[in-house]
Design a protein around this nucleic acid. Structure first.
Length: 124
DNA sequence: GCATTGACGAAGG
DNA sequence: CCCTTCGCCAATG
């Protein structure tokens, strides 16, 4: 899990990078057409209380060489809370719809149906 | 070095 | 049932 072959290019930090990388790895495992929540990822890493850090990690996701599918990560409500952080506010929704996920009013339709739990899926 | 701010979430009022 | 507060921890001012 931790430490792969990721180079420290513009990492937001140097000490807590492991956590960030772990987040990126998990997010990269999300199958196409599926989504998950920040809290689920945090819980999978053992720091379920630090869901905010997952969100913060995504802030640097676009800086990684490997494009992290951050559009597949939403809050527990299924709302595209982070769409404003993309290049364009509609990029996230468009990316999701492109994968077959319906988005209505900045919220994923049938969120539970598309929900991908890293805790379960990575252990089965 | 303290105060404020988050791409969150759960608990309390 | 909606709104507020708190915890979490890193980054920024």
């Amino acid at each position: 899990m931790a430490k792969k072959t990721i180079k420290s290019e513009k990492l937001p930090s140097t000490s807590t990078t492991s956590f960030f990388e772990d987040v990126y790895e998990v997010v990269k495992q999300i199958p196409k057409g599926r989504v998950t929540s920040y809290g689920a990822i945090a819980a999978c890493l053992g720091t379920k209380s630090s869901a905010r850090m997952v969100g913060w990690a995504m802030n640097g996701a676009h800086l990684r060489k490997d494009k992290v599918p951050a559009h597949r990560v939403v809050n527990r409500n299924g709302m595209l809370s982070g769409k404003m952080h993309f290049k364009t506010p509609d990029a996230m929704q468009k990316a999701l719809e492109k994968e077959g996920i319906k988005v209505k009013n900045d919220t994923i339709v049938d969120f539970e149906k598309y929900f991908w739990d890293p805790m379960i899926e990575l252990f089965r």
